[in-house]
Simulated assay, not measured.
Amino acid sequence: MGVKERRTKILLLLFLIAGVDFLEVMIDEQLQKIFDLTLNQKTRGTLSGLIKEGLIQKGATENTYKLTLKGFEELSLKFPLFRYLKNTWDGKWRIISYEIPEKKREIRDRLRREMQGWGLGPWHRSFWLTPHPIIEILKELVSQKEEEKYIQAFEGVPVFGDRDILIEKVWGKSNLDKTYRELFKKWHDILSGQEEKTDKFRKILSEYVTILRLDPGLPKELVGESWIGFEGWNIFKEIKSILLG
């Protein structure tokens, strides 16, 4: 399904199955197959760790769990689309600038990996833009580390300029729209097949996770309520209710 880390996989399962209301989810054999999980000792150890960190809560029945707000915030750092399915944008832009010397390439590459899911788009050379509230996360990430001296971060509201031009330049909205339309065609082909429902949903999920990694998670205030990314989420929920209901 494109997610290898067990911790992220569990958080993703709980959100995609329960939705924005964080309902309890029983991780039964069907969901284990779909999300490529087994409730072995390692997985149960990960679940216990997530509970201790306050990222998930154990339900009343066996193998039942639900996501917490803290867990949702961590997941949104991997898949930024999720944040504004639930939260409201505060209207602020965050700008990050960093120039790390080539001889420190391993530091630069590590920083880029950490920030990969923050919805950052390239604005100008060495300047990255995002509507997500990531400044405090960035501070924690680089505090007292060597890369701290190479980074500048800003936060504020726009005063003047064409927002649509900015969004297209920074995030390539039209290309993302095309990618979603290609996804919908793939979903249609999968649903038209003769496989079992569980196998169909597993493929649906795998294709969706691929584009979730690409979507910067722009809020409706920037892209409108009819943005195709929101449409994709609603279609996914419908497919889920058909195949797993």
Rank of each mutant, 00 (worst) to 15 (best):
P219C: 06
G224F: 08
K237W: 11
W227H: 09
L183E: 10
L13W: 00
H188K: 14
E106W: 04
L69H: 15
W227Q: 03
E147D: 08
G19D: 06
G224A: 05
R181V: 08
I51M: 09
L69I: 13
F236R: 01
K52E: 13
S97V: 04
F72W: 03
L85Q: 09
L111Y: 01
L111R: 00
K185M: 08
F184V: 05
K200V: 00
E231F: 13
S241I: 06
G59I: 03
K4E: 14
T64D: 04
D199A: 04
V3F: 01
G49P: 03
G161A: 10
P101C: 02
Q152F: 11
E182A: 13
I151A: 06
V157Y: 15
F35V: 00
E182K: 13
T130W: 03
I239E: 01
K52A: 12
R83F: 06
I56Y: 04
K86D: 03
L166G: 11
T46Q: 06
W123R: 05
T68V: 14
D189F: 07
G59M: 11
L37K: 02
L166Q: 05
F35Y: 09
D28Q: 03
E53D: 13
R113C: 07
Q32N: 07
S226P: 02
P216D: 09
S206D: 08
E99T: 04
E29H: 05
T8G: 06
F230M: 07
R202Q: 07
V20T: 14
K70F: 10
F22E: 02
F127T: 06
G245Y: 01
Q32H: 03
G161T: 09
L77S: 14
D164C: 05
G2V: 02
K173T: 09
H124R: 11
E53N: 09
F236T: 03
R110G: 11
V209L: 12
E106D: 05
G19I: 04
G156C: 12
E182Q: 10
T210V: 06
S48F: 13
L138D: 06
E29C: 00
H124I: 11
P219K: 02
I204Y: 01
